[in-house]
Design a binder for these strands. Structure first.
Lengths: 117, 117
DNA sequence: GATATCTACAACCATATGGTTGTAGATTAG
DNA sequence: CTAATCTACAACCATATGGTTGTAGATATC
């Protein structure tokens, strides 16, 4: 299905965006309050352009949004994308949990079955 | 601190490992039950060596463990790493939540203060 | 109007990533 | 013993990634 490809791509973007400590730091900062891009750039040991690229990756993953204010571009964290990532991980955990449930079920079955074999 | 670097690297590895749909699929499969590497390789449209590399990346992120059984290498998902990723995301969410709390606090203050200004 | 600031974006570079094929060592099956 | 299977790992390749510098357009400040 085409929709599946979209979900896959979105998850790829989401986790990829999270797989960098600078970007995780930007998320935290922009969760606290809005920051302009150059505001953020002053904070990290890299060029303005590099930070700009990190913000673009976060934006594509919808982890942050940008809003223009005069000549500044204000970046704000979007908690919904983090929730999305949490849900994806919880779905994985669910597969694991259901396996444990099945094992419990097998162990709870009448032991005679096993002994008689 | 040196410990921080370790945590950073670990988080990088963890989210990077999750940022690929083949690897997320392997996690799900090995959460259900153990699979040998060639078992997994038969399932995906790529070479054995490619799957082997994906498993290595998952192993480095501690998302799976391997156990030898004769000539086979059995791969099993490790739910603890998923929990770790969940915790990291929840910590981010916490920053956001505390900001909301602060805003609520400001809005709950005696309105006279604002009016009198 | 002139100058400084903030942003966008292109071009470039070194390294990482995700794939391939090929070779060789262990282990099992016939 | 021989053949088949499973794994490890090296070498290679195209593209992606994360950084750089430089240029140019908007906006604000003096």
């Amino acid at each position: 299905m085409v929709v599946d490809i979209k979900i896959r791509k979105k998850s790829d973007d989401l986790f990829h965006a999270l797989a960098d400590s600078t970007r995780r730091s930007i998320i935290r900062h922009t969760f606290e309050r809005e920051h302009s891009v150059s505001d953020l750039a002053r904070f990290y040991p890299m060029s303005f352009a590099a930070v700009q690229k990190h913000v673009a990756i976060l934006e594509r993953a919808e982890l942050v949004t940008k809003r223009r204010s005069g000549r500044e571009q204000l970046v704000r964290g979007n908690v919904l994308a983090v929730r999305e990532a949490l849900e994806l991980l919880e779905q994985m955990e669910e597969v694991w949990r259901s396996r444990i449930d099945r094992m419990d079920q097998i162990l709870a079955e009448d032991p005679k079955e096993g002994v008689m074999k």
